[in-house]
Amino acid sequence: MTEMRKISVKVNGKAYEAEAEVRMHLADFLRQKLGLTGTHLGCEHGVCGACTILLDGRTARSCLTLAVQVDGHEIMTIEGIADGDTLHPLQEAFRDNHGLQCGFCTPGMLTTLIELLRDNPDPTEEEVRIGISGNLCRCTGYQGIVAAALDAAKRMRALS
């Protein structure tokens, strides 16, 4: 149960090395071992999506991923989305469309939408709603988030 492993992982472009129990999940590893508390735990059974991160570019629930599974891999979390103090167009669209209130589900919403908009740069509203249907938000009723995603898609298309 308490066997320790050394884990080497690149997070938001920076290399980290830390020890963790084999039973530790990735979200706890990010939050407790690496001090990256931007990733949030809402349910720890893979249903709310708050802990979603990008693992080698694809979304993953960090509460359902063991820390040992990411040894030698690359991760992106909410802390890695902005360029310094310059917000990513998706983050700007969230601010402009009131896509967040308490901010707790926001890390998972952003990472999920980074993937969605990369794979589908011009989604319909229905595609966005289905795309984020694995992420629970209790504050916004989703309307601001959907508007933000569609607005971000437009901004990102204009940039590319």
């Binding site: 931007g38 949030h40 735990l41 601010r95 402009d96 901010g103």
Partner: peptide, 19 residues
Amino acid sequence: VRRKEDFRFLTGQGTYTDD
């Protein structure tokens, strides 16, 4: 007015109790 609090929440810099 756009929210002053959004920057910290959008960049993962909020400070919730468990943080």
